[in-house]
Simulated assay, not measured.
Amino acid sequence: MQVKSFIESTLNAHLSPVTLNVLDESHMHNVPSGAQSHWKVTIVSESFTGLKLIQRHRKVNELLSEALAGPVHALSLHTYTPNEWEKRGKSVVPSPNCMGGDKN
Rank of each mutant, 00 (worst) to 15 (best):
H38F: 09
N12A: 11
K40M: 12
N97P: 07
A35E: 04
V31L: 15
L11I: 12
L20F: 08
K4P: 00
H27F: 12
S45L: 03
L11Y: 03
N12R: 15
V72M: 07
T19W: 05
L68R: 10
I54N: 08
S95F: 13
G70F: 05
M1Q: 11
E25R: 09
V93R: 13
P96Q: 11
V92M: 05
V93D: 09
V41G: 00
T81L: 10
R58T: 06
H38G: 03
A69M: 11
D102H: 11
L20D: 03
H27V: 10
T81I: 11
V93F: 08
V3R: 05
A35T: 09
T79I: 06
K52N: 11
P94F: 02
R56S: 05
K87H: 09
S47R: 11
I54H: 13
S26L: 02
V18T: 15
E86G: 01
V44L: 02
M28A: 08
H29P: 01
P96S: 12
A13W: 02
L51P: 02
K87I: 09
E25Q: 12
G70R: 10
V92R: 05
K52D: 05
N83S: 14
G34P: 00
H29E: 06
V31P: 02
V93L: 12
E86W: 01
N61S: 10
T79F: 01
D102S: 06
C98G: 01
V93P: 00
T81M: 07
S26Y: 02
K59R: 15
L11F: 07
T42V: 14
N97Q: 15
S95K: 09
G101V: 04
E46N: 06
P71V: 04
V22M: 05
K59I: 03
L77H: 04
G89Q: 11
T81N: 05
S26E: 05
P96N: 12
L15S: 00
I54D: 08
N104A: 08
S16I: 03
F6T: 12
R58Q: 13
V31S: 01
K4Q: 15
D24Y: 07
W85Y: 08
G34Y: 04
K87C: 04
K90N: 15
F6H: 14
L64W: 01
